[in-house]
Computed example of a mutant assay.
Amino acid sequence: MLGNKCYRSRQSRTRISERIVRCVISVSDEQIPRAGTGSRPRSDTVSGPSVERLEHTAKALMFKSMSVNSWRSYHTAVFNNFRSAYSLNNNWPADQQHVVLFVAYCFEKGLSPKSIKSYISGLSYIHKYRGWYDISNIFVVKKMLEGCSRSRQTVDTRAPITRKVLTVIISQLGKVCYNDFERSLFNAMFTLAYFGLFRVSELVATATCSNQLQIADVRVTGDKHAILVTLRKHKTNQRGIPVTIRIPYEPESALCPVRSFTDYLAVRPHSVGPCFCHVDGRPVTRNQFASVLSKCLLSGQLNNHHIKTHSFRIGRATDLASEGIQPTAIKQMGRWSSEAYNAYIR
């Protein structure tokens, strides 16, 4: 029954993703010309795949070019709603003046510079795909986006879960969890999230991502000195090139990722699938992860307003920096592809 539910859930996410792609871009007859329109003589037999099959493959390749989250952010509904609200024509390619007004509209609505830039990137992607002008290269639009960033500078208010804070959180699990299994489960997840600098979407299922860690991709070394975690996909690696992360044993610490994970393995159901699951085999969700974290913060009398699921990653990066670990090493350990890791060090 659980397997059927998971299968239906994956089917549902796939259908939603396909609808998003169809809304963002549609491969029409004008964009992929039909075969047989040239002057070369046609053969009565077709040795290759049909034109319909090639069109289907073209759509599939376009879909695979970006993550589902990117397709969602590139949805044109907001821009279309803006034009409808102001009685502007819905012609494509979009009028440049409409794009300029749209940027001003988003700013007036209080959207962050990052969100506004994302909307413009989506419009630009559609235009480039269809062979129209590149919105992102319009001088006025570029300067307006720069003005948004200068006028509305955002500050990351998320607080770090440092080793000290993590110790308090783990100590509260016995009070907020229903049983010893749940306590062991969330102890392993929270500890691994911190020491492995994991994004929550890499560990558990989220509303937009089903690439959660599988039990087959985690193993404890024979000497029990480390955990080896293989990530098939992550935010900066959408091409599915596996990355193996080695998380060492912490012999002098009350917080040991190897010990907490082996304790969880001892009680985990013997089944394949997601690494972190409840006693009945149901996978842990992001909402459940966040809910237990929030209860632990409340029980431990910690400020829970600025501590989020990403705080494990922020806290570990902060602790490593305070220990004198080289920035290049922190960047590699956290799987950052840019200098963005600097913003995580508090």
Rank of each mutant, 00 (worst) to 15 (best):
L2E: 14
N4G: 03
K5Y: 10
R15K: 13
V21M: 08
V21P: 06
I32K: 11
R34M: 12
G48P: 03
A60W: 05
A60Q: 14
M62Y: 07
S70E: 11
W71V: 04
W71K: 08
N81G: 10
Y86S: 03
N90D: 13
F102P: 06
L111Y: 15
L111D: 08
S112P: 00
Y119W: 08
G122R: 05
H127F: 08
H127M: 07
W132D: 14
F139T: 12
M144N: 01
E146M: 09
G147H: 07
C148K: 00
S151V: 00
R152I: 11
D156Y: 06
T157G: 05
A159T: 12
K164G: 11
T167P: 00
D180Q: 12
R183D: 04
F186K: 00
F186S: 01
A188H: 07
M189K: 00
F190S: 02
T191R: 00
Y194I: 10
L197K: 01
V204T: 04
V204Q: 02
T206F: 05
A207W: 05
V220D: 01
D223E: 12
H225G: 15
I227C: 03
L228H: 10
T230W: 05
P248K: 05
L255G: 09
Y264L: 06
V279K: 12
N287S: 15
V292E: 04
L293K: 06
L297N: 08
L298M: 05
G300Y: 04
G300D: 10
E323H: 09
E323I: 01
K331H: 08
G334P: 00
S338N: 07
N342D: 01
N342K: 10
R346W: 06
